[in-house]
């Protein structure tokens, strides 16, 4: 990166470090932090949407509500990492199976042959001819979808509770004014539920942030992958920057990154809570009113 980096073996400690930390692989490592942030930026709203639908379904009429409740209960009862490992393969196979049925209707060999999953070439996702970046994007999208499904169930759980926490009187008043159930839901219940949901959703955001290193298990080249790769012992044969086993320090850096991230989130979420509590008929809102009045 810098002009003096041509012969690292002759450098002093500081310039050596400056050169070492700006090698191509290190730049990829820093880019991986972007991957994590991207995952969060896409997954959070998607999971919230999944959760909203599931919560709305779970409080609806009987046969559908079982589906919603079942989704919530199963995802909560089983370790999330098992779900990650499961969905990544399952979603992939489901997609290929559907495309296989559509694109190759006259294929007569069975799809599961012993330990193999065989679909026709046209149904492969992504196509074996597609360039590398499509493969990478596909892997990332599968990861995003998996995260959204798992965290959607958690969000559904929170939103389901929040919908029930909205005071009964508010709903009754809306009905007394002659609102239809659809109007009551969208105009009264949904705007009011957020303040009850926020503590749970904040917690969920923290959990989501802390679940991002699991991307590594889904085959994405994320920060954990690079930290393991870069930290490992390097001999002079293969690199200009030989060093011992530094993986401990790389993971320490990741630990600090996550601590800073969760701390900042905590502060922002606390501010948001203060904002949403304003004017609400809750103890928090009442306290704010008293402080302002005094």
């Amino acid at each position: 990166m810098y002009s003096f980096c041509t012969d690292p073996a002759t450098l002093d400690m500081l310039p050596w470090l400056a050169c070492y930390l700006t090698t191509g692989k290190h730049l990829a490592f820093y880019g991986a932090f972007g991957t994590v942030l991207l995952l969060l930026a896409i997954t959070a709203p998607l999971a919230l949407a999944f959760g909203f639908v599931a919560a709305a379904v779970a409080r609806g009429p009987a046969p559908l509500s079982w589906l919603g409740r079942g989704y919530i209960a199963v995802v909560r009862g089983v370790p999330d990492i098992a779900f990650f490992l499961f969905f990544v393969i399952a979603l992939d196979q489901m997609l290929e199976w559907v495309r296989h049925k559509v694109k190759c209707p006259d294929w007569d060999a069975p799809i599961r042959q012993g330990s193999d999953f065989v679909v026709c070439d046209a149904a492969k996702v992504p196509l074996s001819t597609s360039p590398q970046w499509i493969h990478e994007t596909y892997g990332f999208s599968l990861a995003v979808l998996t995260f959204a499904i798992v965290f959607g169930a958690f969000a559904a759980n929170v939103l389901f509770g929040a919908m029930r926490a909205v005071p009964r009187g508010q709903i009754e008043t809306a009905e007394a004014y002659g609102m239809s159930s659809r109007q009551t839901f969208w105009r009264i219940l949904v705007p009011q539920m957020w303040v009850y949901a926020l503590p749970g959703l904040s917690n969920l955001w923290m959990v989501l942030v802390k679940a991002t290193p699991l991307l590594f298990l889904l085959g994405v080249e994320d920060i954990v992958y690079w930290a393991r790769d870069l930290g490992g012992t390097k001999t002079p044969q293969f690199t200009d920057y030989p060093h011992g086993d530094w993986r401990m320090w790389y993971f320490l850096a990741l630990l600090v990154f996550y601590l800073a991230f969760t701390r900042v989130s905590e502060i922002v979420l606390a501010r948001l809570m203060t904002r949403l509590t304003r004017g609400q008929a809750t103890t928090g809102g009442e306290r704010q009113r008293k402080v302002r009045a005094a």
Partner: peptide, 22 residues
């Protein structure tokens, strides 16, 4: 409490393992 609750368990495992290795 802050350090343990603020960082992912997965990273803690990695860090501890490599620390023990050193």
């Amino acid at each position: 409490i802050f350090v343990v609750r603020g960082s992912p368990l997965f990273i803690q495992f990695f860090f501890a393992y490599f620390a023990f290795l050193s």
